[in-house]
Structures are given as structure tokens and as C-alpha cells.
Nucleic acid binder design. Structure first.
Lengths: 244, 244
DNA sequence: CGAACTTTTGATATCACTCAAGGGACGTGG
DNA sequence: CCACGTCCCTTGAGTGATATCAAAAGTTCG
């Protein structure tokens, strides 16, 4: 009669939103969360070029996948929220093509690749769940590419903030129309491809338009409908973000 | 004693570069290539929002994943070359988040999702191979995001052309330093996020610098070393492109 | 309280977009 | 074989968006 830990609940919400896993499956997942370590802000957990033997499941705090460019720039190519797995398929290649960096303090579960593979092989349902999560991340990546390639700085930034907000809310880190988003403008600029200075001005523009407030680590959506319009946010995309 | 068809050979090069599949596995794959249809240039095979019951394996010609934006723009988020599968995990979501469009005439094998799933379940080796291919596509997507977010039009374009060339060569569509790349400048601009006019000028710049020639459907790399430098092309990325 | 980091501001430079139009190339029908 | 349309590539001029540089103001934290 084990009470399910908050950490497991988080993971289950991602892998099994409809609550179909049986007790055995849940126990397997629970057992995998036995190596939990805290992290600080701005740490590099794995570095581009590494060959990590472990996968990380974010339990608390924000992290990202990032790439450093020879020209000195740094690109954030994905945000990782609590419940997100930095996933096992990375083991398929000799070397990591990107870094895993934390953005805020938090906690993560370390899961050996081999163990993850055994998990995945244990149940059909689990294998499917992992693949769903991966497919979702792929779809987000495609949306980002379109976002980066085709939209203006203003739209692009609004779109990213909408996405983050929906995801935060989905894991319980935002309620109503506000939530904690302790990112620096540098982080946002690395993700949007804008310079920090310009990103700052874009944010001011969004604030002045009465669309949102962002400061002191808190994002508040003032006018969701209008913001979503500015962001060119497709309803299907929101659905996708909430699907897993 | 069946001779392996050229089409199967192509697929095997992608899934099993080291030639480790046994005869039974190869036979399974071969049998899946029974519904082959030609396509013309600029056709939409699947449309954003569809729920296709079939997956497509490109056998000949070029295609892409693309997204259309409300603002009228069109983004190419991935190029698909012969041997590339437009893959089965798409079935995990209710609706396709992007379109599949052809760029040149060619041929494709249509494989029902259910059949693909059976294939994947049949052998450990096959499941792994499909995941490797998917992981490679993910890594390419991450590189594209960094490319779009951080690099100048010139570097970005050079990088894309380098990638395409390496991939073309890898499937035997380019030899030495030239190959067929029958894309329009519109296609390239949709992929780089530059306007057609500006892309045209960027290409002229690359040509004038003596780095490459591109016209009449042919891409010729004049100075690979220097082009790779302009493109900020990482050796690890080239390796990744050639890894599967 | 001071150091380091983050946000903001101002001024200027540049990259890339838009609009508009002219030249190929290629295919089709007369 | 030529005339014509269509699509693609190219050019020019003007504008707008975004980057860069530099420095001030605000914030966090030891």
C-alpha cells in the first residue's frame, strides 16, 4: 500500500495522462526514481560530445537542451519542464549532439540507460508512452523551426511565452493566468534567436500592449485571447502541448 | 534466391548500414515494399491535420515536411531523401502537425501504419533501427533550430547546402563534389527562413566567393574546405549525417 | 555595502524584407 | 519552327527590423 510520491505523480501525468497503467507498471516507474539529485541554476549536466550512461528526468526546476556555436552564440533548442525526460534514444549515438543545462535550481532523477531500456521493454504500454512523449517533443521542435524561420520577433516571442505558459500550467506550475517562469531575458533570447537588447524591447512592447506581464520570475498573461492572436498560436498546437 | 531490389538496398543502407540484418528481417522489409506509387513535383501527399493510415518511404526524388503559417508563409522543417521514412510515430497523435510535400517527381512506397508496427515488433534489430533513424532526424532538427536562430543568412544557407550535399552523397545521389539538387530557390528560402530575393543574393555571394555552383538542378561544391568553414559545419554533424 | 548579474535606454549600423520590374528557360500549341 | 505563357531567377531601389556598441539603472547576494 505505497502512497505514490509527488515525483511519480508528475511523471505519470506525462506518460499516462488517462491513468491506464496497472499497479505493476507504476511500481516499475516508481522504483526507477531512486537516484534523485538536486541541481543549481546554470549548471551543465551533460556536455555536447559526452556519452552519458544515464538519462535525466526533471522533477523540479527548469532545464534546456542547448547548442553552442563556434561564433560564440548559444542556442536553446528545447525547454525541459518537470516531468520531461531527456531521453534514452540519445544512447543510440556515440556522442551527444547538444548540452543539457539547468536554468533554475531544482531536482532531477538519474536513470541509467540500461534501466530505462529494461523499463521500456517491460510493457507495451510503457514503450508506447515513451514514444508518445518523444513524438510530442518532435512536434514541438517542428513548431520551433517554423517559428524561428517565419515569424517576426514579436510574434516569435509571444509564441514561445504562450507555449511555456501552457506547459507550465499543464504540470501544475501555473494556475489561472499566472505562473512562475524564472528565466532571464538572456535565456529567452537564446531560445528565440533575438539579441538580448532586442528581446527586451519586444517584451516591453508586449507589456505596453497590455498582453502580459513578465518580471521577477513570474509570467502573467493579461489578455490570453489577444496574446494568442499576436502569437499566431494554433489551437491544435495547444492541444498537442496538453496531450501528454 | 531473391535478388535484393535497388529500393530495398536503399532502405537497408539507412536502417542497417553495417549489414547485420539476417535474411528473415530483410525479407520482411522487402515484403513491405509492395505498394509503390510515383509522384509528381509539388504534390501534397499528406496535409496538415490529416490522419493518414499509411506511412511513406521515399524511394526516388525529394520531399519535405512543411508547415503553413496563418501569415501566409511556408516553412520547410525537414528534407526527405530517398531512404527516408516519414515515420510511423505520427500515428500516435490524432492529427498530423505538418504536411508532406514532394519537391521533385519521384516514387514512394506506401506502408500501412499497422504493418509498420508489426515490422517494428517483429525484431529487436528492426525496432532499434527505426529508433536510430528517428533519433538522427531529431538531431538534425536541433541543428536546424540552432542554424535558424543563431546564424547569418550566408552561413545558414551554406550550412543547409552542406547538409544536403552530404546526405545526397550518402544515398548515392552525388559523387565527388557534385550532385543533382533540383530545388527551386523558393524551396531553399522556405527552409532557411530567408526571403526568395535575399536568398538569391546570398547564393550569388557564395558563387562569387568561389565556394559552390548551383543551377539547373545541380549543386557543385567548388571548395569544400572553405565552404564548410563559412557554414560553421561541425565534423561531428557530418558524421551524424553519415551515421545512418 | 559592494560585486556581479540582469534589465533598460540611447544611438547608430546593417542585414534582410518588400515592392516592382526585367530577363531567362522551358513547354505547349499553332 | 515560331509565338506565347508560365515559372523561375535576377536586379534595383527604398524601407523596416534587428544587431551592435556603450553605458546607466536596478536587482540579488554574499
Amino acid at each position: 500500500m505505497t502512497r505514490t510520491s509527488p515525483d511519480l505523480t508528475l511523471w505519470l501525468r506525462k506518460l499516462d495522462p488517462d491513468g491506464r497503467f496497472d499497479g505493476a507498471t507504476r511500481a516499475l516507474l516508481s522504483a526507477a526514481l531512486d537516484d534523485i539529485r538536486p541541481f543549481g541554476a546554470h549548471q551543465t549536466l551533460f556536455h555536447e560530445g559526452d556519452r552519458p550512461a544515464e538519462t535525466i528526468l526533471i522533477l523540479e526546476g527548469l532545464a534546456c537542451r542547448s547548442k553552442e556555436l563556434p561564433s560564440g552564440g548559444r542556442a536553446i533548442v528545447a525547454f525541459l519542464l518537470p516531468g520531461d525526460l531527456c531521453n534514452g534514444d540519445l544512447a543510440l549515438f556515440p556522442t551527444l549532439d547538444h548540452s543539457l543545462r539547468t536554468l533554475t535550481p531544482g531536482r532531477a532523477a538519474y536513470i541509467p540507460q540500461t534501466r530505462l531500456q529494461r523499463l521500456e521493454a517491460s510493457t507495451q504500454a510503457l514503450a508506447l508512452a515513451f514514444r508518445r512523449a518523444a513524438a510530442q517533443e518532435d512536434a514541438i521542435a517542428r513548431e520551433w523551426m517554423a517559428n524561428l524561420a517565419q515569424r517576426s520577433g514579436r510574434t516569435r516571442t509571444a509564441h514561445l511565452l504562450c507555449e511555456l505558459f501552457v506547459r507550465l500550467r499543464h504540470v501544475g506550475l501555473a494556475r489561472g493566468f499566472s505562473g512562475a517562469l524564472p528565466l532571464t531575458q538572456q535565456d529567452l533570447s537564446d531560445a528565440t534567436g533575438l539579441s538580448v537588447v532586442h528581446l527586451n524591447r519586444v517584451l516591453q512592447g508586449l507589456r505596453r500592449s497590455g498582453l502580459l506581464r513578465l518580471g521577477r520570475g513570474t509570467l502573467e498573461i493579461v489578455d490570453w485571447r489577444r496574446l494568442a492572436r499576436v502569437a499566431e498560436l494554433a489551437p491544435d498546437y495547444v492541444e498537442l502541448l496538453e496531450a501528454a
